[in-house]
């Protein structure tokens, strides 16, 4: 039984998953990284590879509402999951409050950490709508930024929290 199972799984698999609200089916090896499937098969290049070992957070996406490093997720484990990438955050041309705040506060410089950073902030604000500065700093501590020193990022998240509360 195991032998036949092995033969079957060495081939490409069909994996269905919902990405930014749309049902997608990809053919992939089960150990392909979710990051690579998003970027190479689905053309969603907003998630970036910075380290390939779950340290920098630039590949962050939401998997069933939980922030994950997509470089550490084998695509088979994302089967039937609901994935949100940076491309799915804005509603059409209308930017999300967080995206607007990052623009205004200088939270994005080179931009490479920005998609992951915004998703980490989004995940934080869902759980803690009124975070303290320390909570913001902790919530983003898995997302490395080499440009800003994080100050304007933390300010952007605080600003977005205020605006979401006021809305």
């Amino acid at each position: 039984m195991t032998e036949s199972l092995s033969l079957e799984i060495r081939a490409l698999h069909e994996v269905s998953l919902t990405v930014n609200g749309e049902l997608k089916t990809v053919r992939a090896y089960p150990m392909e990284r979710l990051l690579d499937v998003l970027r190479h098969q689905l053309g969603l290049t907003g998630a970036k590879e910075g380290c390939g070992e779950g340290e920098c957070g630039s590949c962050s996406v939401l998997l069933n509402d939980a922030l994950v490093n997509s470089c550490l997720v084998p695509v088979l484990q994302a089967k039937d999951a609901d994935i949100v990438t940076i491309e799915g955050l804005a509603a059409g041309v209308q930017l999300d409050v967080l995206q607007e705040a990052f623009l205004k506060s200088g939270g994005a410089q080179c931009g490479i950490c920005t998609p992951g950073m915004i998703l980490a902030a989004h995940h934080l604000l869902r759980r803690k709508p009124n975070p303290t500065t320390e909570e913001i700093r902790e919530g983003l501590s898995g997302n490395l930024c080499r440009c800003t020193g994080y100050i304007q990022i933390v300010e952007a998240v605080a600003e977005a929290a205020r605006r979401r509360a006021a809305a």
């Binding site: 969603l44 290049t45 998630a47 491309e87 623009l103 931009g111």
Partner: peptide
């Protein structure tokens, strides 16, 4: 004056094209 960054919108929406993209 702190005008909006020219390429800022592309960066916060993930549309900015880096070489690996």
């Amino acid at each position: 004056v702190s005008v909006p960054r020219k390429e800022g919108r592309d960066k916060v929406t993930g549309r900015a094209q880096y070489v690996d993209d």
